[in-house]
Amino acid sequence: MAEFRAYVALGTAQIRSAASYRASFLVELFGNVGATVFDVLTVLVLFRATPAVGGFTLREAILIVGISSAGFALADMLVGNVDKLKTYVRTGTLDAVLVRPLPALPQLLLMDLPVRKALRVVFGFVVLGLAVAANDVAWTPARVLLIALAPLMAGVFFSAIFVTSASLAFWWVDSGEIGSAFTYGGRDFTSYPISVYGSWFRNLFAYAMGFGFVAYQPALTLLGRDDPLGLPSWTGFLSPLVALVAAVIAGVVWRSGIRHYRSTGS
């Protein structure tokens, strides 16, 4: 409980810090929405040229985009800043964090919580809402549960990806932008029906790394469509399980990263 209060205090401090630069804060608040707006616009533009991409209509595709965007925006706001770990390691901020009586990861996230990305989360969920309304979903209790869970689990999954790829910096400080291949790359991957990808690429990202269960499979289950790739319809409900596994892996990687840091210094 006391620990929770400490986290709340850290989070509010960050909000007050950000608000002390009011003009930049507003620009960045709206600029960040712009990024997600463009992601959605890209999909609309592509559908101008064709009635179907990978066998999916625009309405169906937007549902996939909605789940992915809402989940990604959520993860990006809460956890995305962990990709600054490289800088934290280099400047010694990590040392300063390690001498405080709280776990390192939540401290780092809350110390730099990007409040300016909040509006983006709202936009992501609005797109998801419109997508749900645009599709004729035959609602069952299971589907209601799924539409509530899918974006949150997408958020958990992307958070895990953010933490895992940022942890790379513990072993490789000069890893540059390699993490974004999986974070932003993962978002792009999950924004389209996975039937568009070549088979080895799809097997790697969708099934081996689990990105297929973030938005694509839940969307199929919601729409009541058969998977052109042959997975049964209950696989849409795997998204919490896949997110959980990803989170556990991220936790293990982060912990061993910290252990590595402790044994090598920066």
Partner: peptide
């Protein structure tokens, strides 16, 4: 050469925060 304080906040608030962090 490394700060434990919150860069953008008044000193008083940094101290108040540390009270929570250290309970």
């Amino acid at each position: 050469q490394r700060s434990q304080l919150w860069w953008d906040l008044p000193l008083r608030e940094s101290f108040a925060l540390l009270r929570h962090v250290y309970r």
